[in-house]
Design a protein around this nucleic acid. Structure first.
Lengths: 413, 413
DNA sequence: ATTCTTTTTTTCGAAGCTCGAAAAAAAGAG
DNA sequence: CTCTTTTTTTCGAGCTTCGAAAAAAAGAAT
């Protein structure tokens, strides 16, 4: 079954641990790393010396408020921005955003493009993404570290190898092999992840206090997405990114969903579902493919100002989300919930309904304790999640594994 | 975050790996262990010698069909039954079964008792279990290895520390602290696990081909239970055993469930729910607390023989289970399903309905590929899961960690 | 200005682990 | 009785981590 640990693995793992400790903390000293990793001073000293000589870490001296404490001052260690660069690409409905991020996590440059994803051919979609990546790489011009990873986030279901987009609401095509195509074109490891999973990763990095080992991120937009962090690990299915919260059944044989089935949560809570219902259209009518944010805001205003069909539509949406979350709480335990995306603009209407619905489910006893936290703009979160996914992959696979970039080891010492 | 690996941890981990390899395989030779662990011959030889001298492994020579191959014959290694003994206790509605299992996994003795769990006081419940454990330990009489673990399985929700029964349908009491009480009484580590989780563990040991890294076990009985194996790990909530599949909402504001809420899957698919509906009682009537297996069999016969209210009841049950499984398949991926327990006796009626319902959900596309496998009697599975849980815990924590039982090391060699 | 303290970091030898190669052991084949 | 083949053990080499002691780098005290 699981494999034994070899002797040289030990160093690799501990190197990765040190890098990871530096990424988590803000410029920790060697002593702080000792505390975090519970390794000895000698070991940390040796590993840090290696990593510095390899150009992975740098001593960030000078800066930082001189602690004014007695004794030899601590030397802050930081990730070297020069060590590597990664490319992030976020593909959503009609929009593509690519960025270049250095090893320390700072965004170097960023480009956003509009494109008609729903009508493009499969090859066109792939080549458009490739062109955007080429463009941003070309501008890079060899300043900074070598580009070592491409991290793509897409709405929809991806395979568990993070190479293929299996299904997506933004294109009629299935099995779009972004991973294989980009790897062939650029000769770099490429990952393709679900956008909500990237949001989840980003929230965990941004605010580990609130979004720590267990929380739920829900994306309210044209459709409904979800990311789940359980016991500090991103929850995914064995074969796919899964977590298709929006397509759990809310009402058997109920409203027609974009996915072709009936009664999905999304068929009540997606923007298109709210719009459909608020316009008095039948639940079984195929929904429109894109709805303007301002149109949704008008519906929300109507719902706020008076009883009526608009308010009913938002109530139905809140109920679907609430029962969905409650059902989830039957399987896992109640946990903080982050609500992200355009739908957040109407969250004042949704929240009481959601809470009421949760109250009727297994999570009900904790309904009051459940906290929601909202963020309107999902794009930066997705990009950040992509970047951190690529960077931590480097931390472990490349820089943790031993001298990746050939730099002379300390000989002159 | 995560902790660095120390130098002496290495041996501990590899020892545990070797023990685990021996437990998984049937009397493997050292060479087979080399293949399984990917460690070197030298290392395996050294570790095996240690484990044998400590009385944890034994060389099972002589037996086994002499392979008739050339070369030095392989020496089969086996777990020493003498190394330790564990106690398993399974507590279900009105029944308690305790057993003694040796380190190699053979059941030494077993006792089953009937008791009125629903009406017993909290203390009475605990002390009855303690008495049964005492009794079986007393009969042990120092033959065999020292008793090192007590593993309890209960219907209901347990905490993630596996020490307390938080809620259970078999007793009105909450927070029954079996773990603390038994540990105090016997001075041994005690775990309290959910019965369905133990079934899941057992299935994985019994048939790893079919029930490998990803599968679902559903217990159909008075209530509905579930255990989930995902990526080779038992799925539990962060704070509790969770996995309360039976209490996911099937129909908002629907039938009254035993748990007090409305519309749970169990309120349609539990024996009591089928019985209630087949008798024409209102969905909102409190259900009876226990139903005879033969009464259920009568209903099933009626459902088989003619259209009517009984068949409707089973249809409603199958639909609830099917939508539940389908909803799960939206979150994870379709996986093999084992159906266990008394309800299996009517599975011929349920299966087509379940498949039909799954077909309407996100898992629908795979409906045909989903395989069900049934087993009527859950008790042996639960006991086996308990035993394996306790034994593998010993493998890692006690025998993996270094010389637990003080036996002279090889000096005379 | 110089000498304590205090704290961080590095150095150094010891102990332990795994590994590869070679040797030993244990069988059947010739 | 001597090969051949396969398994298992032995042995020295090369890492790694660790603890203790030394070195470094600052403020505090005299």
């Amino acid at each position: 079954m699981s494999i034994g640990i070899r002797h040289d693995d030990l160093r690799k793992r501990n190197r990765a641990m040190v890098i990871s400790a530096v990424r988590r903390a803000v410029q920790p000293s060697r002593t702080e790393i000792v505390r975090a990793t519970e390794l000895s001073h000698s070991t940390i000293s040796a590993i840090a010396a290696d990593l510095i000589s390899e150009g992975i870490l740098v001593e960030a001296k000078g800066e930082g408020a001189s602690s004014a404490r007695r004794g030899r001052p601590q030397v802050a260690l930081a990730l070297s921005p020069q060590a590597a660069t990664v490319v992030t690409a976020v593909l959503s409905l009609n929009i593509l955003s690519v960025a270049l991020v250095d090893y320390a996590g700072s965004t170097i440059r960023e480009v956003t493009k509009r494109l008609p994803t729903l009508t493009m051919a499969k090859q066109e979609l792939i080549s458009t993404v490739m062109a955007a990546v080429s463009e941003i790489i070309a501008g890079h011009a060899k300043r900074g570290g070598p580009i070592l990873r491409i991290s793509l986030a897409v709405q929809g279901i991806t395979d568990s190898e993070a190479r293929t987009l299996l299904w997506s609401p933004i294109t009629p095509h299935r099995n779009v092999e972004f991973g294989a195509a980009l790897e062939k074109a650029f000769g770099l490891p490429v990952t393709v992840h679900n956008d909500c999973n990237m949001i989840t990763v980003a929230l965990n990095w941004r605010d580990p206090e609130r979004y720590g080992d267990n929380f739920i991120a829900i994306l309210l937009s044209h459709g409904i997405g979800m990311g789940l962090m359980l016991k500090g690990r991103l929850f995914t299915g064995p074969h796919s990114s899964a977590g298709e919260f929006g397509h759990m059944i809310h009402k058997p044989d109920g409203a027609l969903c974009r996915c072709g089935r009936n009664g999905c949560i999304e068929a009540y809570a997606g923007n298109y579902a709210i719009w459909r219902k608020a316009r008095g259209t039948s639940e079984y009518e195929p929904p429109p493919s894109d709805i303007d944010a301002s149109a949704m805001e008008e519906l929300a205003q109507a719902a706020r100002s008076r009883e009526g069909i608009e308010r009913d539509a938002f109530r139905a949406a809140g109920e679907a989300i609430g029962f969905g979350i409650g059902g989830l709480f039957a399987l896992i335990d109640p946990a903080p919930v982050a609500i992200v995306g355009q739908g957040v603009s109407a969250f004042d209407i949704l929240e009481p309904v959601i809470r009421e619905a949760i109250g009727k489910t297994a999570g009900g006893q904790h309904s009051a304790a459940i906290s929601f936290d909202t963020d309107l703009n999902e794009m930066p979160l997705i990009r950040e999640g992509c970047a951190m996914t690529a960077l931590t992959s480097l931390d472990h696979a490349v820089f943790g594994a031993g001298a990746a970039i050939s730099v002379p080891r300390r000989d002159v010492a």
